[in-house]
Amino acid sequence: MTLSQVPGNDEGVVYAGVQNNPTIGDKLQPVDIVADEEFVRDYVNATGDETFWAFRASTRARHGIDVSPLTMFDRDIGARLVGISARFGLHAKQEFTFNGPVTPGGAYRLAGEVVNVFEKRGIEYFTTRCYCHPIDEPDNVLLDSLYTRAYKFPQNQYPQSREDRRARLSDWLQASGGRARETFPHPGAIVEGRTRLLDQARLNLYSGPGSGAHTDNLLARQGGLRGTVGQALMLTELESELYRDLFGIDFYRKGAMRSSFIATIPVGVEVRAATVVESVADGVLTLRSAVASTSGDLLSVGTATIRDWL
């Protein structure tokens, strides 16, 4: 099934549905969002980020500005901007580059296009690039994001063989040069974030109704999964909390995160983000990131940077 095209703007741009038949250069129908207090509160409640309000109060007191959660538009980038009408698809990668905070009460536009279509190990993927800016300031890009989705599997089935060889957090820490006694921000220092339970109630609250394999057991099993699975973006949200705690408002202005989701997220699992300092050079602090279950199964890996470090 291919989505029908819809009219574009007055300049003659035609926006195409890309969920099932992506083509490089396809434009995405822009999405406008008013990030009012209700929008912020709904996102914070959905993610379970209980420390956000204290962080925002501290930022207001120290810097005189209000902020929103770093990845607050993550679901809109994938579900609203790109669309969710595909019968079955899984999030593969996500990148965020932060250039400034989204201020509660402001009106913002998400716009983008398909920048890559490729196949790997028989699975077909597409990548979209999204820019977020205030509606009346198109040159003020606050968020630059790349979103990669696996949208076509052999026999329309998720390959369960991938689940039989789960990587381990302990092996990742060793390969990343983690040293338990090193102190931050020296290379090898390990920092862990908070633990969060991703049960079905949390998935339902975060994903919303009609969210396919995240909320519908039958649809998930028809796609080759053992049951409903967590949203990959729930892992990047945990990473963003960790970097917010480490760097404060600076990460909103000059931070970046890149994540690859290497396993499905079982319902009922407790997860925690971890980071290892890789290097400090030329004013850039580089870290390696991971999110794993508390039993040690690795779910995502990636990197993070912050510019003009100190």
Rank of each mutant, 00 (worst) to 15 (best):
L235Y: 05
Q155P: 02
A46I: 02
Y252N: 06
W53V: 06
T103K: 15
E113L: 13
T59R: 03
P101G: 05
I65H: 04
V277Y: 07
P22L: 15
L169T: 02
S211E: 05
L142Y: 03
E95K: 13
R226L: 06
E137R: 08
R168S: 13
V191N: 11
T148F: 03
M257E: 14
C132G: 11
A304Q: 09
E278W: 06
L233D: 02
I84D: 12
P22N: 09
L218C: 13
A79L: 15
E113N: 11
G283V: 02
R253Y: 05
G223D: 06
S145W: 06
Y243P: 00
T127E: 12
A111R: 04
Y131P: 03
V229Q: 00
L225Y: 01
S211K: 05
E192V: 08
N204K: 04
A61R: 08
Q231F: 00
T148H: 02
L198P: 00
A263D: 09
H133C: 08
V115I: 14
E182I: 12
Y15K: 09
S259M: 15
D250F: 03
Y151T: 01
V291I: 09
R179C: 09
Q160G: 05
L242N: 12
S295W: 02
S293G: 00
Q157P: 00
P30C: 11
P101M: 13
L225W: 04
S300F: 07
G106H: 04
D136R: 07
T71S: 12
Q5S: 14
P69H: 06
R121N: 12
S207P: 03
A35S: 09
N140R: 14
L233H: 05
A256M: 08
A290E: 11
E239G: 11
N116F: 09
T47N: 07
V271N: 00
T305E: 14
G64R: 06
R272P: 01
A232L: 01
V14Q: 11
L225K: 04
A111L: 09
R179E: 10
Q174C: 12
A57I: 06
V117C: 10
D26S: 13
F184Q: 11
H63G: 10
L310A: 14
N45P: 15
V117G: 03
E124N: 08
L287D: 01
T215K: 11
